[in-house]
Amino acid sequence: MAETKVTEQDVMYVADLANLELTAEEKGRMIRDLNSILEHIEMLNELDTSDVPPLAEVASMFAGPQVDAGGRFAYAMRADEARPGLPHETALAGAPESDGVYFKVPKVIEK
C-alpha cells in the first residue's frame, strides 16, 4: 500500500463512481474520515502476504463434502425447472413511477 492520502479530488472521483453527490460539508468530513480509516488500515502492510491466497468467501473452504472438487458448491445447482416468480404487478408496486408495464425514468438519450 502506498502512502496514499485521500484528496478532495479522490473523494469527488470515488463519489462519481459510487453515484453519490456529496454536499460541500459532506465532502470535507469524508476527506477527514477516509484518511483516518485508511491510516488505521495501513496496519495490514506489516504482514507479508505475497504467498497467501485470497479468501473471498468461507463456504467453499469449510462446507466439507458438499463442495465439489472445483471448490464450488455442488448444491448451488438445481434442476432447471420453471417456478413462479414475483407477479408483474407486485414487482411494480414499489416503483416510484411506472406505467403499469415498465418502470419509468427520466429521459436517458438527449437529442
Partner: peptide, 28 residues
C-alpha cells in the same frame, strides 16, 4: 455513504490489489 465511499475506493482501479485483495489475503 462513508462505507459506500470506502468500499468503492478499495475496489477502484489502482487500489484493488493494495486494499481489497490485501484484505482477502489477510482473511486467509
Amino acid at each position: 455513504k462513508r462505507r459506500i465511499m470506502l468500499g468503492t475506493y478499495a475496489l477502484s482501479a489502482g487500489y484493488y490489489d493494495a486494499y481489497y485483495l490485501k484484505a482477502q489475503r489477510v482473511r486467509t
